[in-house]
Design a protein around this nucleic acid. Structure first.
Lengths: 244, 244
DNA sequence: CTATTATACCGACCGACGGTCTACCATTCA
DNA sequence: TGAATGGTAGACCGTCGGTCGGTATAATAG
Protein backbone atom coordinates (compact mmCIF):
# COMPACT_ATOMS: atom_id res chain seq x y z
CA UNK A 1 0.00 0.00 0.00
CA UNK A 2 1.43 3.41 -0.96
CA UNK A 3 2.01 5.77 1.88
CA UNK A 4 -0.08 8.88 1.63
CA UNK A 5 0.18 11.65 4.14
CA UNK A 6 -2.74 13.98 4.56
CA UNK A 7 -3.68 16.83 6.76
CA UNK A 8 -4.71 15.27 10.08
CA UNK A 9 -8.06 17.05 10.28
CA UNK A 10 -8.89 16.07 6.74
CA UNK A 11 -7.97 12.47 7.51
CA UNK A 12 -10.18 12.53 10.56
CA UNK A 13 -13.14 13.88 8.66
CA UNK A 14 -12.57 11.34 5.92
CA UNK A 15 -12.57 8.58 8.47
CA UNK A 16 -15.81 9.89 9.93
CA UNK A 17 -17.33 10.08 6.44
CA UNK A 18 -16.48 6.50 5.61
CA UNK A 19 -17.50 5.30 9.05
CA UNK A 20 -20.82 7.09 8.65
CA UNK A 21 -21.52 5.47 5.31
CA UNK A 22 -20.56 2.01 6.56
CA UNK A 23 -22.23 2.21 9.94
CA UNK A 24 -25.45 3.38 8.38
CA UNK A 25 -25.54 0.86 5.57
CA UNK A 26 -24.37 -2.15 7.53
CA UNK A 27 -24.83 -1.21 11.16
CA UNK A 28 -22.22 -0.49 13.76
CA UNK A 29 -21.58 -4.09 14.68
CA UNK A 30 -21.53 -5.55 11.21
CA UNK A 31 -19.29 -2.88 9.73
CA UNK A 32 -15.85 -3.93 10.81
CA UNK A 33 -12.87 -1.73 11.45
CA UNK A 34 -11.20 -3.38 8.53
CA UNK A 35 -14.07 -2.28 6.32
CA UNK A 36 -13.68 1.27 7.53
CA UNK A 37 -9.94 1.45 7.01
CA UNK A 38 -10.23 -0.28 3.67
CA UNK A 39 -12.80 2.28 2.54
CA UNK A 40 -10.61 5.10 3.80
CA UNK A 41 -7.52 3.54 2.21
CA UNK A 42 -5.64 3.60 5.45
CA UNK A 43 -3.89 1.16 7.78
CA UNK A 44 -4.91 -0.04 11.20
CA UNK A 45 -2.04 1.84 12.73
CA UNK A 46 -3.16 5.05 11.13
CA UNK A 47 -6.69 4.52 12.37
CA UNK A 48 -5.60 4.00 15.94
CA UNK A 49 -3.54 7.12 15.64
CA UNK A 50 -6.77 9.08 15.27
CA UNK A 51 -9.24 7.14 17.39
CA UNK A 52 -8.65 5.20 20.57
CA UNK A 53 -11.17 2.53 19.68
CA UNK A 54 -14.04 1.66 17.42
CA UNK A 55 -16.35 3.00 20.08
CA UNK A 56 -14.53 6.31 20.14
CA UNK A 57 -15.15 6.56 16.42
CA UNK A 58 -18.84 6.02 17.06
CA UNK A 59 -18.91 8.70 19.73
CA UNK A 60 -17.13 11.18 17.49
CA UNK A 61 -19.57 10.42 14.72
CA UNK A 62 -22.54 10.95 17.02
CA UNK A 63 -21.09 14.26 18.16
CA UNK A 64 -20.64 15.39 14.59
CA UNK A 65 -24.27 14.57 13.87
CA UNK A 66 -25.41 16.52 16.88
CA UNK A 67 -23.23 19.47 15.90
CA UNK A 68 -24.70 19.50 12.41
CA UNK A 69 -28.23 19.31 13.74
CA UNK A 70 -27.56 22.18 16.08
CA UNK A 71 -26.14 24.27 13.26
CA UNK A 72 -29.34 23.67 11.31
CA UNK A 73 -31.45 25.48 13.89
CA UNK A 74 -28.95 28.13 14.89
CA UNK A 75 -30.85 30.89 13.07
CA UNK A 76 -34.02 30.13 14.99
CA UNK A 77 -32.09 30.13 18.21
CA UNK A 78 -30.44 33.43 17.41
CA UNK A 79 -33.49 35.30 16.14
CA UNK A 80 -34.21 37.93 18.81
CA UNK A 81 -37.71 38.73 17.55
CA UNK A 82 -39.19 35.31 18.26
CA UNK A 83 -41.48 34.79 21.21
CA UNK A 84 -41.10 31.46 23.06
CA UNK A 85 -44.03 29.77 21.34
CA UNK A 86 -42.88 30.76 17.87
CA UNK A 87 -39.36 29.70 18.69
CA UNK A 88 -40.53 26.33 19.93
CA UNK A 89 -42.74 25.87 16.88
CA UNK A 90 -39.89 26.93 14.66
CA UNK A 91 -37.60 24.41 16.26
CA UNK A 92 -40.11 21.60 15.96
CA UNK A 93 -40.92 22.39 12.36
CA UNK A 94 -37.29 22.86 11.41
CA UNK A 95 -36.23 19.58 12.98
CA UNK A 96 -38.80 17.96 10.75
CA UNK A 97 -37.93 19.98 7.69
CA UNK A 98 -34.20 19.52 8.04
CA UNK A 99 -34.47 15.78 8.22
CA UNK A 100 -37.10 15.25 5.57
CA UNK A 101 -36.77 17.94 2.96
CA UNK A 102 -33.14 18.93 2.79
CA UNK A 103 -30.11 17.11 1.52
CA UNK A 104 -31.05 13.72 0.13
CA UNK A 105 -28.36 12.07 2.13
CA UNK A 106 -29.83 13.54 5.28
CA UNK A 107 -33.09 11.85 4.49
CA UNK A 108 -31.45 8.58 3.62
CA UNK A 109 -29.64 8.93 6.89
CA UNK A 110 -32.80 9.10 8.95
CA UNK A 111 -34.44 6.40 6.98
CA UNK A 112 -31.47 4.24 7.81
CA UNK A 113 -30.90 5.32 11.36
CA UNK A 114 -33.93 3.53 12.73
CA UNK A 115 -33.09 0.12 11.45
CA UNK A 116 -32.53 -2.29 14.29
CA UNK A 117 -28.90 -2.88 13.42
CA UNK A 118 -28.26 0.82 14.00
CA UNK A 119 -29.64 0.87 17.50
CA UNK A 120 -26.33 1.60 19.13
CA UNK A 121 -25.43 4.35 16.73
CA UNK A 122 -28.87 5.86 17.06
CA UNK A 123 -28.67 5.84 20.81
CA UNK A 124 -25.32 7.57 20.76
CA UNK A 125 -26.62 10.28 18.45
CA UNK A 126 -29.65 10.61 20.67
CA UNK A 127 -27.50 11.13 23.72
CA UNK A 128 -25.39 13.73 21.98
CA UNK A 129 -28.47 15.46 20.59
CA UNK A 130 -30.20 15.47 23.96
CA UNK A 131 -27.16 16.96 25.58
CA UNK A 132 -27.15 19.79 23.03
CA UNK A 133 -30.85 20.43 22.64
CA UNK A 134 -32.40 19.85 26.04
CA UNK A 135 -30.82 22.90 27.67
CA UNK A 136 -31.98 25.05 24.77
CA UNK A 137 -35.51 23.72 25.05
CA UNK A 138 -35.50 24.27 28.79
CA UNK A 139 -34.39 27.84 28.28
CA UNK A 140 -37.18 28.53 25.82
CA UNK A 141 -39.77 26.92 28.06
CA UNK A 142 -38.54 28.91 31.04
CA UNK A 143 -38.91 32.12 29.05
CA UNK A 144 -42.39 31.08 28.06
CA UNK A 145 -43.30 30.48 31.68
CA UNK A 146 -41.94 33.85 32.69
CA UNK A 147 -43.87 35.81 30.09
CA UNK A 148 -47.01 33.82 30.86
CA UNK A 149 -47.32 31.91 27.58
CA UNK A 150 -46.58 28.48 29.02
CA UNK A 151 -47.80 27.01 32.26
CA UNK A 152 -45.91 24.08 33.75
CA UNK A 153 -44.00 23.28 36.92
CA UNK A 154 -41.36 21.09 35.32
CA UNK A 155 -39.56 22.67 32.34
CA UNK A 156 -36.97 19.90 32.20
CA UNK A 157 -39.68 17.30 32.12
CA UNK A 158 -41.49 19.04 29.32
CA UNK A 159 -38.26 19.39 27.38
CA UNK A 160 -37.71 15.66 27.71
CA UNK A 161 -41.20 14.99 26.44
CA UNK A 162 -40.62 17.25 23.46
CA UNK A 163 -37.45 15.34 22.62
CA UNK A 164 -39.25 12.04 23.06
CA UNK A 165 -42.02 13.08 20.74
CA UNK A 166 -39.52 14.27 18.18
CA UNK A 167 -37.68 10.98 18.24
CA UNK A 168 -40.87 8.95 18.17
CA UNK A 169 -41.98 10.85 15.09
CA UNK A 170 -38.77 10.04 13.28
CA UNK A 171 -39.23 6.43 14.20
CA UNK A 172 -42.68 6.43 12.65
CA UNK A 173 -41.44 8.21 9.55
CA UNK A 174 -38.77 5.60 9.10
CA UNK A 175 -41.28 2.80 9.46
CA UNK A 176 -43.58 4.46 6.97
CA UNK A 177 -40.87 4.28 4.34
CA UNK A 178 -39.76 0.83 5.35
CA UNK A 179 -43.11 -0.65 4.37
CA UNK A 180 -43.14 -2.12 0.91
CA UNK A 181 -46.10 -1.18 -1.22
CA UNK A 182 -47.55 2.25 -1.85
CA UNK A 183 -50.72 1.21 -0.08
CA UNK A 184 -48.71 0.30 3.00
CA UNK A 185 -47.13 3.66 2.89
CA UNK A 186 -50.39 5.53 2.54
CA UNK A 187 -51.62 3.84 5.67
CA UNK A 188 -48.39 4.67 7.44
CA UNK A 189 -48.56 8.30 6.35
CA UNK A 190 -52.10 8.56 7.61
CA UNK A 191 -51.04 7.12 10.96
CA UNK A 192 -48.14 9.51 11.11
CA UNK A 193 -50.37 12.45 10.31
CA UNK A 194 -52.72 11.66 13.18
CA UNK A 195 -49.79 10.93 15.46
CA UNK A 196 -48.27 14.31 14.78
CA UNK A 197 -51.64 15.90 15.54
CA UNK A 198 -51.77 13.98 18.80
CA UNK A 199 -48.31 15.20 19.75
CA UNK A 200 -49.29 18.76 18.95
CA UNK A 201 -52.35 18.63 21.13
CA UNK A 202 -50.52 16.78 23.88
CA UNK A 203 -47.86 19.48 23.98
CA UNK A 204 -50.53 22.20 23.88
CA UNK A 205 -52.16 20.76 26.95
CA UNK A 206 -48.99 19.92 28.81
CA UNK A 207 -47.85 23.49 28.33
CA UNK A 208 -51.24 24.95 29.23
CA UNK A 209 -51.76 26.36 25.75
CA UNK A 210 -54.99 26.52 23.79
CA UNK A 211 -55.34 23.61 21.40
CA UNK A 212 -53.77 24.44 18.06
CA UNK A 213 -50.91 26.51 19.42
CA UNK A 214 -48.14 24.01 18.82
CA UNK A 215 -47.66 23.42 15.11
CA UNK A 216 -45.15 20.73 14.23
CA UNK A 217 -46.28 20.91 10.65
CA UNK A 218 -49.36 21.95 8.74
CA UNK A 219 -52.01 19.28 8.28
CA UNK A 220 -51.17 17.37 5.12
CA UNK A 221 -47.59 18.44 5.40
CA UNK A 222 -46.26 14.98 6.02
CA UNK A 223 -48.14 13.51 3.10
CA UNK A 224 -47.00 16.27 0.77
CA UNK A 225 -43.38 15.92 1.74
CA UNK A 226 -43.31 12.19 1.63
CA UNK A 227 -45.02 11.79 -1.70
CA UNK A 228 -42.63 14.37 -3.09
CA UNK A 229 -39.74 12.37 -1.69
CA UNK A 230 -41.12 9.21 -3.11
CA UNK A 231 -41.21 10.72 -6.58
CA UNK A 232 -37.83 12.35 -6.62
CA UNK A 233 -35.57 10.01 -4.76
CA UNK A 234 -36.64 6.44 -5.15
CA UNK A 235 -33.54 4.39 -4.51
CA UNK A 236 -31.61 7.22 -2.96
CA UNK A 237 -31.65 5.52 0.42
CA UNK A 238 -28.49 3.97 1.63
CA UNK A 239 -28.80 0.25 1.11
CA UNK A 240 -26.85 -2.50 2.75
CA UNK A 241 -23.86 -3.70 0.82
CA UNK A 242 -24.82 -6.75 -1.21
CA UNK A 243 -22.11 -9.07 0.05
CA UNK A 244 -19.12 -9.18 2.32
CA UNK B 1 -16.41 -32.77 31.14
CA UNK B 2 -18.96 -35.38 32.23
CA UNK B 3 -22.04 -35.64 30.16
CA UNK B 4 -25.15 -34.68 32.06
CA UNK B 5 -28.52 -34.98 30.47
CA UNK B 6 -31.34 -32.87 31.74
CA UNK B 7 -34.90 -32.28 30.81
CA UNK B 8 -34.77 -29.98 27.79
CA UNK B 9 -37.11 -27.39 29.22
CA UNK B 10 -35.11 -27.25 32.43
CA UNK B 11 -31.88 -26.88 30.48
CA UNK B 12 -33.38 -24.09 28.45
CA UNK B 13 -34.54 -22.22 31.52
CA UNK B 14 -31.14 -22.70 33.11
CA UNK B 15 -29.48 -21.25 30.07
CA UNK B 16 -31.82 -18.27 30.19
CA UNK B 17 -31.10 -17.84 33.91
CA UNK B 18 -27.35 -17.76 33.44
CA UNK B 19 -27.63 -15.59 30.37
CA UNK B 20 -29.80 -13.16 32.30
CA UNK B 21 -27.30 -12.91 35.14
CA UNK B 22 -24.36 -12.44 32.80
CA UNK B 23 -26.05 -10.10 30.34
CA UNK B 24 -27.22 -7.89 33.17
CA UNK B 25 -23.96 -7.77 35.06
CA UNK B 26 -21.63 -7.45 32.11
CA UNK B 27 -23.84 -6.37 29.25
CA UNK B 28 -24.87 -8.33 26.20
CA UNK B 29 -21.76 -7.60 24.18
CA UNK B 30 -19.23 -8.12 26.92
CA UNK B 31 -20.70 -11.35 28.19
CA UNK B 32 -19.44 -13.93 25.76
CA UNK B 33 -21.09 -17.12 24.74
CA UNK B 34 -18.24 -18.95 26.38
CA UNK B 35 -19.08 -17.22 29.63
CA UNK B 36 -22.67 -18.31 29.34
CA UNK B 37 -21.93 -21.93 28.56
CA UNK B 38 -19.26 -22.07 31.26
CA UNK B 39 -21.74 -20.75 33.81
CA UNK B 40 -24.31 -23.23 32.66
CA UNK B 41 -21.77 -26.03 32.62
CA UNK B 42 -22.54 -26.93 29.07
CA UNK B 43 -20.70 -27.22 25.79
CA UNK B 44 -20.91 -25.03 22.73
CA UNK B 45 -22.59 -27.77 20.83
CA UNK B 46 -25.24 -28.15 23.50
CA UNK B 47 -25.88 -24.44 23.46
CA UNK B 48 -26.44 -24.38 19.73
CA UNK B 49 -28.75 -27.29 20.17
CA UNK B 50 -31.07 -24.97 22.10
CA UNK B 51 -30.53 -21.59 20.47
CA UNK B 52 -29.71 -20.73 16.91
CA UNK B 53 -27.46 -17.82 17.86
CA UNK B 54 -26.49 -15.52 20.67
CA UNK B 55 -29.10 -13.12 19.41
CA UNK B 56 -31.79 -15.79 19.60
CA UNK B 57 -30.84 -16.25 23.23
CA UNK B 58 -31.32 -12.53 23.77
CA UNK B 59 -34.71 -12.58 22.10
CA UNK B 60 -35.85 -15.53 24.17
CA UNK B 61 -34.70 -13.76 27.31
CA UNK B 62 -36.58 -10.62 26.38
CA UNK B 63 -39.69 -12.63 25.72
CA UNK B 64 -39.43 -14.29 29.09
CA UNK B 65 -39.18 -10.88 30.74
CA UNK B 66 -42.24 -9.66 28.91
CA UNK B 67 -44.15 -12.78 29.83
CA UNK B 68 -43.32 -12.33 33.49
CA UNK B 69 -44.30 -8.68 33.41
CA UNK B 70 -47.60 -9.55 31.82
CA UNK B 71 -48.27 -12.20 34.45
CA UNK B 72 -47.72 -9.56 37.12
CA UNK B 73 -50.68 -7.52 35.93
CA UNK B 74 -52.94 -10.33 34.88
CA UNK B 75 -55.26 -9.87 37.88
CA UNK B 76 -55.85 -6.23 36.99
CA UNK B 77 -56.52 -7.18 33.42
CA UNK B 78 -58.96 -9.90 34.44
CA UNK B 79 -60.88 -7.96 37.09
CA UNK B 80 -64.33 -7.41 35.56
CA UNK B 81 -65.34 -4.72 38.08
CA UNK B 82 -62.75 -2.15 37.05
CA UNK B 83 -63.73 0.85 34.97
CA UNK B 84 -61.21 1.94 32.31
CA UNK B 85 -59.68 4.71 34.41
CA UNK B 86 -59.20 2.47 37.44
CA UNK B 87 -57.78 -0.26 35.27
CA UNK B 88 -55.33 2.14 33.66
CA UNK B 89 -54.33 3.52 37.04
CA UNK B 90 -53.98 0.04 38.41
CA UNK B 91 -51.73 -0.93 35.54
CA UNK B 92 -49.56 2.14 35.92
CA UNK B 93 -49.24 1.74 39.67
CA UNK B 94 -48.62 -1.97 39.47
CA UNK B 95 -45.93 -1.61 36.86
CA UNK B 96 -44.19 0.65 39.33
CA UNK B 97 -44.87 -1.51 42.34
CA UNK B 98 -43.79 -4.73 40.69
CA UNK B 99 -40.48 -3.35 39.67
CA UNK B 100 -39.62 -1.40 42.79
CA UNK B 101 -41.14 -3.16 45.72
CA UNK B 102 -41.26 -6.84 44.92
CA UNK B 103 -38.54 -9.40 44.57
CA UNK B 104 -35.13 -7.89 45.26
CA UNK B 105 -33.73 -9.37 42.12
CA UNK B 106 -36.45 -7.68 40.13
CA UNK B 107 -35.30 -4.37 41.48
CA UNK B 108 -31.66 -5.09 40.87
CA UNK B 109 -32.72 -6.03 37.40
CA UNK B 110 -34.22 -2.67 36.65
CA UNK B 111 -31.40 -0.83 38.26
CA UNK B 112 -29.08 -2.73 35.99
CA UNK B 113 -31.15 -2.69 32.88
CA UNK B 114 -30.59 0.98 32.16
CA UNK B 115 -26.84 0.89 32.15
CA UNK B 116 -25.44 1.77 28.76
CA UNK B 117 -23.91 -1.64 28.21
CA UNK B 118 -27.38 -3.14 28.45
CA UNK B 119 -28.87 -0.99 25.74
CA UNK B 120 -29.41 -3.84 23.34
CA UNK B 121 -30.96 -6.09 25.95
CA UNK B 122 -33.17 -3.27 27.15
CA UNK B 123 -34.34 -2.51 23.66
CA UNK B 124 -35.27 -6.11 23.05
CA UNK B 125 -37.24 -6.28 26.28
CA UNK B 126 -38.89 -3.04 25.33
CA UNK B 127 -39.95 -4.41 21.99
CA UNK B 128 -41.33 -7.56 23.56
CA UNK B 129 -43.10 -5.58 26.28
CA UNK B 130 -44.60 -3.15 23.79
CA UNK B 131 -45.86 -6.01 21.71
CA UNK B 132 -47.61 -7.48 24.74
CA UNK B 133 -48.84 -4.37 26.48
CA UNK B 134 -49.75 -1.92 23.76
CA UNK B 135 -52.77 -3.85 22.53
CA UNK B 136 -54.03 -4.14 26.10
CA UNK B 137 -53.63 -0.43 26.67
CA UNK B 138 -55.35 0.33 23.41
CA UNK B 139 -58.26 -1.86 24.40
CA UNK B 140 -58.62 -0.11 27.75
CA UNK B 141 -58.42 3.32 26.16
CA UNK B 142 -61.00 2.35 23.55
CA UNK B 143 -63.36 1.25 26.28
CA UNK B 144 -62.78 4.51 28.09
CA UNK B 145 -63.62 6.44 24.95
CA UNK B 146 -66.79 4.45 24.45
CA UNK B 147 -68.10 4.99 27.94
CA UNK B 148 -67.17 8.66 27.78
CA UNK B 149 -64.37 8.67 30.36
CA UNK B 150 -61.55 9.38 27.93
CA UNK B 151 -61.49 11.76 25.02
CA UNK B 152 -58.90 11.26 22.29
CA UNK B 153 -58.83 10.55 18.58
CA UNK B 154 -55.74 8.32 18.61
CA UNK B 155 -55.87 5.45 21.11
CA UNK B 156 -52.76 3.82 19.68
CA UNK B 157 -50.84 7.05 19.99
CA UNK B 158 -51.92 7.52 23.58
CA UNK B 159 -50.95 3.94 24.37
CA UNK B 160 -47.51 4.63 22.93
CA UNK B 161 -47.16 7.71 25.07
CA UNK B 162 -48.16 5.76 28.16
CA UNK B 163 -45.47 3.19 27.38
CA UNK B 164 -42.94 5.93 26.75
CA UNK B 165 -43.71 7.59 30.03
CA UNK B 166 -43.44 4.30 31.85
CA UNK B 167 -40.06 3.57 30.36
CA UNK B 168 -38.82 7.08 30.97
CA UNK B 169 -39.78 6.79 34.61
CA UNK B 170 -37.78 3.62 34.99
CA UNK B 171 -34.85 5.35 33.41
CA UNK B 172 -35.03 8.12 35.95
CA UNK B 173 -35.40 5.68 38.81
CA UNK B 174 -32.30 3.87 37.68
CA UNK B 175 -30.36 7.10 37.45
CA UNK B 176 -31.53 8.10 40.90
CA UNK B 177 -29.93 5.00 42.33
CA UNK B 178 -26.87 5.25 40.15
CA UNK B 179 -25.89 8.54 41.77
CA UNK B 180 -23.35 8.17 44.54
CA UNK B 181 -24.10 10.09 47.69
CA UNK B 182 -27.35 10.20 49.62
CA UNK B 183 -27.63 13.88 48.83
CA UNK B 184 -27.40 13.11 45.11
CA UNK B 185 -30.14 10.62 45.55
CA UNK B 186 -32.40 12.98 47.44
CA UNK B 187 -32.15 15.39 44.57
CA UNK B 188 -32.84 12.62 42.11
CA UNK B 189 -35.83 11.42 44.08
CA UNK B 190 -37.22 14.92 44.17
CA UNK B 191 -36.77 15.22 40.42
CA UNK B 192 -38.45 11.88 39.91
CA UNK B 193 -41.35 12.87 42.14
CA UNK B 194 -42.04 15.99 40.09
CA UNK B 195 -41.53 14.07 36.88
CA UNK B 196 -44.12 11.50 37.85
CA UNK B 197 -46.50 14.32 38.66
CA UNK B 198 -45.85 15.82 35.25
CA UNK B 199 -46.58 12.52 33.56
CA UNK B 200 -49.79 12.18 35.52
CA UNK B 201 -51.01 15.60 34.51
CA UNK B 202 -49.85 15.13 30.95
CA UNK B 203 -51.85 11.92 30.66
CA UNK B 204 -54.85 13.56 32.30
CA UNK B 205 -54.86 16.26 29.70
CA UNK B 206 -54.06 14.04 26.75
CA UNK B 207 -56.98 11.83 27.72
CA UNK B 208 -59.28 14.76 28.38
CA UNK B 209 -59.56 13.94 32.08
CA UNK B 210 -59.71 16.39 34.97
CA UNK B 211 -56.30 16.96 36.52
CA UNK B 212 -55.64 14.42 39.25
CA UNK B 213 -57.43 11.52 37.58
CA UNK B 214 -54.37 9.56 36.59
CA UNK B 215 -52.49 8.36 39.65
CA UNK B 216 -49.22 6.61 38.95
CA UNK B 217 -48.44 6.70 42.65
CA UNK B 218 -49.39 8.76 45.67
CA UNK B 219 -47.29 11.87 46.27
CA UNK B 220 -44.33 10.88 48.40
CA UNK B 221 -44.68 7.31 47.23
CA UNK B 222 -41.42 7.27 45.35
CA UNK B 223 -39.47 8.68 48.24
CA UNK B 224 -40.99 6.23 50.69
CA UNK B 225 -40.26 3.22 48.51
CA UNK B 226 -36.78 4.24 47.63
CA UNK B 227 -35.61 5.07 51.11
CA UNK B 228 -37.02 1.75 52.24
CA UNK B 229 -35.11 0.08 49.46
CA UNK B 230 -31.98 1.90 50.39
CA UNK B 231 -32.18 0.62 53.94
CA UNK B 232 -32.97 -2.97 53.25
CA UNK B 233 -31.04 -3.89 50.18
CA UNK B 234 -27.83 -1.90 49.92
CA UNK B 235 -25.52 -3.92 47.74
CA UNK B 236 -28.23 -6.18 46.42
CA UNK B 237 -27.81 -4.77 42.98
CA UNK B 238 -26.12 -6.84 40.37
CA UNK B 239 -22.60 -5.59 39.98
CA UNK B 240 -20.27 -6.08 37.09
CA UNK B 241 -17.87 -8.95 37.42
CA UNK B 242 -14.54 -7.66 38.77
CA UNK B 243 -12.28 -8.97 36.04
CA UNK B 244 -12.25 -11.14 33.02
C1' DC C 1 -33.82 -58.14 24.15
C1' DT C 2 -31.86 -56.24 20.48
C1' DA C 3 -31.66 -52.81 16.39
C1' DT C 4 -32.51 -48.37 14.99
C1' DT C 5 -33.49 -43.85 15.09
C1' DA C 6 -33.83 -39.49 17.51
C1' DT C 7 -32.17 -36.50 20.88
C1' DA C 8 -28.91 -34.35 23.98
C1' DC C 9 -24.43 -33.26 24.27
C1' DC C 10 -19.23 -32.61 23.52
C1' DG C 11 -15.14 -29.90 22.21
C1' DA C 12 -11.75 -29.08 18.46
C1' DC C 13 -11.81 -26.04 15.08
C1' DC C 14 -12.75 -21.88 11.90
C1' DG C 15 -12.66 -17.18 10.02
C1' DA C 16 -13.15 -12.67 11.47
C1' DC C 17 -13.06 -9.36 14.82
C1' DG C 18 -11.04 -5.33 17.70
C1' DG C 19 -6.87 -4.03 19.25
C1' DT C 20 -1.41 -3.96 19.93
C1' DC C 21 3.12 -3.46 18.49
C1' DT C 22 7.30 -2.75 16.06
C1' DA C 23 9.28 -0.90 12.23
C1' DC C 24 9.68 2.72 9.07
C1' DC C 25 9.16 6.77 6.30
C1' DA C 26 8.71 11.81 5.78
C1' DT C 27 9.21 16.03 7.49
C1' DT C 28 11.22 19.60 10.51
C1' DC C 29 14.55 21.92 12.95
C1' DA C 30 19.17 21.97 14.90
C1' DT D 1 23.57 16.09 8.18
C1' DG D 2 21.26 13.96 11.61
C1' DA D 3 18.23 13.37 15.51
C1' DA D 4 13.59 13.91 16.86
C1' DT D 5 8.78 13.73 15.81
C1' DG D 6 4.50 12.28 14.20
C1' DG D 7 1.94 9.89 10.64
C1' DT D 8 1.68 5.29 8.59
C1' DA D 9 2.09 0.27 7.52
C1' DG D 10 0.77 -4.39 8.40
C1' DA D 11 2.01 -8.65 10.91
C1' DC D 12 0.37 -10.35 14.89
C1' DC D 13 -2.48 -11.49 19.24
C1' DG D 14 -6.27 -13.16 22.00
C1' DT D 15 -11.11 -13.69 21.79
C1' DC D 16 -15.34 -13.85 19.72
C1' DG D 17 -19.64 -16.14 17.59
C1' DG D 18 -20.47 -19.98 15.09
C1' DT D 19 -19.64 -24.84 12.70
C1' DC D 20 -18.95 -29.60 12.52
C1' DG D 21 -17.99 -34.42 13.11
C1' DG D 22 -18.69 -37.29 16.47
C1' DT D 23 -20.46 -39.66 20.96
C1' DA D 24 -23.47 -41.04 24.56
C1' DT D 25 -28.11 -41.61 26.13
C1' DA D 26 -33.25 -42.12 25.48
C1' DA D 27 -37.08 -43.60 22.87
C1' DT D 28 -39.18 -46.66 19.71
C1' DA D 29 -39.84 -50.73 16.87
C1' DG D 30 -39.38 -55.52 15.65
Amino acid sequence: MPRVIKHPELRREELLDHAQALFLTQGYDKASLNDVIAAAGISKGAFYHYFASKDALLVALAERFARQALAGVQDILDDPDLDPLSRLNGLLAQSRRAKIETAPEAWALFETLFRPENLVLFHRINLAASASFSPLLVKIIRQGIEDGTFRTFDPEGVADIVMQFGMATHDIIAKAFAGGTDADMDVAIEALETRVRLYEIALDRILGLPDGSIRIGEPGYVRAVMTARRRTSAGTALSPAPAR
